[in-house]
Amino acid sequence: MTNINGKAYAMNAITPMKPWKTPLLKLFFLVLGAVKPLQKDLKNLSFIHFARWVCIGRNAFPRLSDEQPTEELKYDYLLFISNFNGTWNQYIDAFSAVLYKGLDAIWLWSEKYPGSRPVTAFKRYISFVQFDTDYYYNAYPHSATNDVKAAIRVQSAFTKFAQTSQSLSPADFQEAWLSFQAAVSPDLGATGIAPIGT
């Protein structure tokens, strides 16, 4: 299972687009970059560490020597790369359930895209255009992006508390300790090995 390292799954998908559509997609992303609703939804879903969409023009595949044959392509390609937590099915299901408008706006320019609803045809399409990762590195394999964000909140509260608490009287410390524990108590989940992907 080379697509998985710890709690992260590496997805790659490539879809063909008619070249006249590429500027429209880029325009969409440009506007999106400004208004950021997709960014907000992705943040709220909170199971993607990093993701990117890369438009590759039909003449943009790197050519490094004269001996390398020149590509002769009719289509531009949309490359999607994601580092997500959870299982493949969970990921696609979630996209289809709550992010379908954003997804459709991104992929409707691709050939034969069936739409993200109903989910079965969408899954078939994704698995068809997906290609597998050969090597995947993860700096913190035992942590999902939720775990990371929780830990950062804990660290921030902890740093403050550690700096201020030692000079308190024991009675004041006890009260401060209670407040500190209350503040970090939603963020104390264990890290570890993820369940088996399905």
Binding site: L25, L42, F50, A51, R52, V54, P62, L79, T145, K149
Partner: peptide
């Protein structure tokens, strides 16, 4: 060899 990313999302 670099290809410019069109849209990049980083949660943190």
């Amino acid at each position: 060899c670099q290809i410019e990313t069109t849209f990049f999302f980083a949660d943190v």
